[in-house]
């Protein structure tokens, strides 16, 4: 691999293995995989195939049993503060949204940024801007419990975008959505990928993803297959 292509890699895994002692099973087996900056990669596969495990390993939430993970060609193993690594580089979108139902859309977006105790007006403006970008500006002060599933997922995406991550890891973001909302969500992620050049790794069962992602990989029984 030449120097130039290395610089473009955002994630690279080498012989990555993850063994779960509780179930005595391998979630991933010698997985070697590269994601370049600005890619939109769809990761498909049956339940329990190791798709989500890969996302959590890349996010530093799980430790690999063996093998290496590189983020921008820097071994993730040597990153001491994984929380700061996630805060500065990763945005997460979840299937179950995980929003405070009685808080407004804006408050839900801002809450994860409150590790700094007080938020500057510029962050609030940015949050409003992203809600506008995701076409839910009019719901800014609506309680999340009053929003539809599609709108909630957009709040979740807006929350992930707020700290302008280099990469969004989306774990089954369309899993709880009907086909119309699933299309909208995938379309928005594609738009973010194209307009913001944000790298997106999206784990899904949804076949629709092949229309939006630039590359599709499949994980079956912990092994990775292209296409």
């Amino acid at each position: 691999m030449n120097k130039c292509s290395c610089r473009e890699n955002i994630f690279r895994t080498v012989n990555l293995r993850k063994f779960y002692p509780q179930t005595q099973s391998f979630a991933l087996r010698d997985l070697s995989f590269t994601v370049t900056k600005g890619e939109f990669v769809g990761i498909k596969g049956p339940s329990g195939s190791g798709k989500s495990t890969l996302l959590y390993l890349l996010a530093g939430l799980l430790k690999p049993t063996s093998g290496e993970i590189y983020f921008q060609e820097k071994p993730l193993e040597i990153v001491k503060n994984k929380a700061l690594y996630r805060r500065n580089n990763i945005g997460f979108v979840f299937q179950d949204f995980y929003l405070y139902p009685r808080f407004t859309a804006l408050e839900n977006m801002l809450f994860p940024s409150l590790y700094q105790f007080s938020l500057p007006a510029s962050t609030i403006k940015k949050a409003e801007m992203y809600l506008e970008y995701l076409n839910i500006r009019e719901k800014i002060n609506s309680r999340v419990e009053t929003l539809s599933a599609g709108e909630r997922q957009r709040v979740c995406i807006a929350r992930a975008l707020l700290h302008e991550p280099q990469c969004i890891l989306a774990d089954e973001p369309t899993g709880n959505l009907d086909s119309g909302n699933a299309k909208n969500t995938l379309g928005l992620l594609q738009k973010i990928n194209e307009e913001h050049k944000t790298t997106i790794l999206l784990v899904t069962h949804d076949d629709m993803v092949s229309h939006y992602a630039r590359r599709i990989v499949r994980i079956i029984d912990g092994n990775l297959y292209n296409g």
Partner: peptide, 8 residues
């Protein structure tokens, strides 16, 4: 989720 989103 907060931990996943980067809270220490």
């Amino acid at each position: 989720i907060l931990l996943a989103l980067g809270w220490q």
